[in-house]
C-alpha cells in the first residue's frame, strides 16, 4: 500500500483499527531519485500482513513518528534516521543508536563514499 507522508498517520491509524497491531520493521531503500520508507505491519489475530510505503524526496527527507502508535517504532526510527539521514518529526531528540563516530553521513544511502582501500607506499 502506497501513501504520502502527510497521510501516513491516518493510514496507519486506519490499519490499526482494522487490527494491524504489530509493527514488524521499519526500513528504507534509497532508489537515488527517491527514498522509500517501508512499514511492515501484521495483524496478530490471523497473521495477515500489510506493507505501507512512503516515497520521499531525498533532499527533504522526513517522516512523522509512529512512536505513539507502536512503541516498537522507537529503535527502528532511530536506526533509520542515522542510516538514511531521514528526519523523524514529532518525537524527542535522541542520541545515536548504532554509530558513535562523527563525520559519517547516512551510510546506507547510495551517495555514501566508501573509505579508500589501504594502499601500501612501496611500489
Amino acid at each position: 500500500m502506497k501513501t504520502s507522508r502527510d497521510d501516513l498517520i491516518k493510514t496507519v491509524e486506519e490499519l490499526q483499527q482494522k487490527g494491524f497491531d504489530y509493527l514488524i520493521k521499519i526500513t528504507a531503500v534509497d532508489y537515488v531519485q527517491s527514498l522509500t520508507v517501508i512499514y511492515f505491519l501484521r495483524k496478530m489475530a490471523d497473521g495477515s500482513e500489510e506493507t505501507v510505503e512512503v516515497e520521499l524526496n531525498p533532499v527533504d527527507a522526513w517522516v512523522p513518528t509512529l512512536i505513539k502508535h507502536f512503541r516498537a517504532a522507537d529503535w527502528y526510527e532511530r536506526e533509520m534516521a542515522e542510516m538514511f539521514a531521514i528526519e523523524i518529526k514529532g518525537r524527542q531528540a535522541h542520541r545515536l543508536l548504532l554509530e558513535k563516530w562523527d563525520g559519517v553521513e547516512a551510510p546506507l544511502r547510495k551517495s555514501f563514499q566508501w573509505a579508500q582501500p589501504y594502499k601500501s607506499d612501496t611500489k
Binding site: 497491531d21 504489530y22 509493527l23 514488524i24 496478530m44 507502536f70 512503541r71 516498537a72
Partner: peptide, 8 residues
C-alpha cells in the same frame, strides 16, 4: 500481552 505486541 498488549505490551508484547506493541513493543514488537
Amino acid at each position: 500481552k498488549e505490551d508484547a505486541i506493541n513493543f514488537g
